Every structure is written in structure tokens, then in C-alpha cells.
Amino acid sequence: MWFKPKPLDIKEMVAGVSNLVSLPQAYFRISQMLNNPHTTAAQLGEVISHDPALTARLLRFVNSPVYAMRNPVDSVARAVSILGMQELRMLALASSVGNAFQKPPSDLVDMAAYWHHSVFTGIVAKQLGKLCKLPSVDRLFVAGLLHDVGQLVLAHQAPDAMRKVVALLPKYPHHRCQMEQKLLGHDHSEVGAELMRYWQLPESLWMPVRYHHAPELAPEYMLEACLVHMANAIADGVEPSRRGAAPLAYSPISPKAWEMSGLEAAAIAPVVQEANLELFDMLDIIAPSGGMVF
């Protein structure tokens, strides 16, 4: 029997999980430096080098098959000169998130499956952005990567309510947001966007996350929200079954997403094929402890 709960305060929820969810200080320093037009690639490289783990992940990212560099990139400064500073910010964020979260209760989130879905969604969103000829498609990868981050916050902050949601997902696989709204007063897309605002991430990242289940409602960055929405639906249809998910069946795709993107269903198969080629390299960089999902 559903009841109308007193909504949890979303800002308190996000602030309360901040000790469990944290990005490296180097990332925030990078962001500050990028707001200064006089920052050089060498200066960025020096800051990043103070975090050896971040440096290693960034260089693995840049040298992965995704970027198809002819010659190995052996310094962050060179990576910046090749990719650009804003792209580096996106890669620094993407390479940090896998280590940013403590594991939530295992009966609520299978972390291996969670990262598989998140990384696959990010790759597909980026590929769709290329088809739409959008600039800076790396931000679509990051938005796709983080689209379900609110689920981790809710699992930590409201585990009892989320157990009810998870128990009902096999029966109502496409109604997660509605169930979260009824039980908590907020859904994971709202909570994820609030966490990203708390991290001071730009609107171009958190807006697609906030509206990835209802892209037609996005007041800004509607096309980006549509592409993350489509990527999430495509990932639902091709990846291994997640707890409570409907396996091997696309989630419904909003007609607005097809309209805004100008894409047709025939575009999906090549995108999925390309994403499968990139998936495990990306998983190994972003969530190396997440394990494989078969």
C-alpha cells in the first residue's frame, strides 16, 4: 500500500553522503585553474602529477583505443595539448568517479553491474553525440557515466525505502522513478543532479542527468538530455541483466528524443557494436575493482 511520505530534504541527503562520496582534491583544483584563461598545460600537468593515481588513470584514458593515438602519450601536459583543457577536465572527472564511492549495501546495488551499465551508457551517449555532430562529446560520456549516481546516494541514505523499490522492479521495470518519488519524494535523477551541483559541476553535465528519464522537460541542454536518455535505454537492451531490470529489452525511448536527435532506429546497431569494442577498456580504467559482468 502506497502512502505519501514526508519528502527527504535532498540537500541534506547529498551533504550527508559527502563523507562516503568524494572526488580527489586534484580534480577541484583542476577545475579552478581551468576558470583562469592564463592557465597553461604545464601548470595543469604539475597539479595533476601531485596525485599519482589520477595521473596514471588519465594517461591510461588518453592512451586507450578510444582516442587511437598514433604515438603513446607520456605526460599530462602533452595530453592537454592534444585533447584540450576542457576535454582534460572531463577525463579527470570520468577517471575519478570509480574510486569516489564507498560500496552501498550489496542487496541494493550490484556494483559490477552498476558500473557496466554506467560505462556502457556513457560510451553510447558519446557515440550518439558524434552522430549528431555535437562539440565536446566527452561531456556526454561523463553525463552518461553519472546518470544513475543518485541510485548510490539513495542506497546509502534511504536503504529501507530502496529495498521496497528494488523488490518491485521486476514487476514494474520502467517505473523506478515513480516508485522513488512515492516513497522518498525524490527520484534518483534529481538526487544525482543535486550531488553534481554539490560537486560544483557545470550545468551541461548535471542537466542531462536530471532529465535523463524525461528529456522533453529539460529547460536547457535538451538534446544532451535526449541523448543520455537514449543511451540509457539502449544500454538496458543489450547489457547483462541488472538486479530488478528487464533484461534484453529496450526501455521506452521518448518520441522527443528521436525528434531532437534526428536519428533513426537503424543507427543503434552500429553504435552498440562500437560501444562493445570500447567497453572493457573503459571499465578497466574507471572501475577496475568492479569486476566483469557476463
Rank of each mutant, 00 (worst) to 15 (best):
82 I>N: 02
120 F>A: 14
281 D>I: 01
175 H>Q: 15
236 D>W: 13
280 F>G: 05
97 V>M: 15
201 L>M: 10
229 H>V: 13
225 A>M: 12
217 L>I: 06
208 P>S: 09
240 P>A: 12
155 A>P: 07
256 K>D: 08
68 A>T: 00
145 L>G: 05
15 A>D: 05
29 R>P: 00
41 A>K: 00
211 Y>F: 15
163 R>S: 14
192 G>K: 03
18 S>K: 11
12 E>R: 15
235 A>S: 15
279 L>T: 06
268 I>W: 06
17 V>E: 08
54 L>I: 07
104 P>A: 15
4 K>C: 06
81 S>P: 04
76 V>K: 07
18 S>L: 03
292 M>V: 13
284 D>P: 01
208 P>G: 06
264 E>D: 11
256 K>L: 11
236 D>K: 04
230 M>R: 04
228 V>M: 04
61 F>Q: 10
217 L>V: 00
195 L>I: 04
124 V>S: 05
60 R>C: 06
91 L>Q: 06
134 L>K: 13
264 E>S: 14
40 T>N: 08
292 M>N: 10
79 A>W: 05
236 D>I: 06
112 A>P: 03
256 K>G: 00
34 L>T: 09
149 V>N: 02
269 A>E: 14
101 F>L: 09
11 K>V: 14
11 K>M: 14
36 N>Q: 05
34 L>C: 03
152 L>Y: 06
74 D>M: 11
130 K>E: 15
49 S>I: 07
160 D>L: 14
279 L>I: 05
173 P>Y: 08
166 V>I: 12
61 F>T: 07
48 I>V: 15
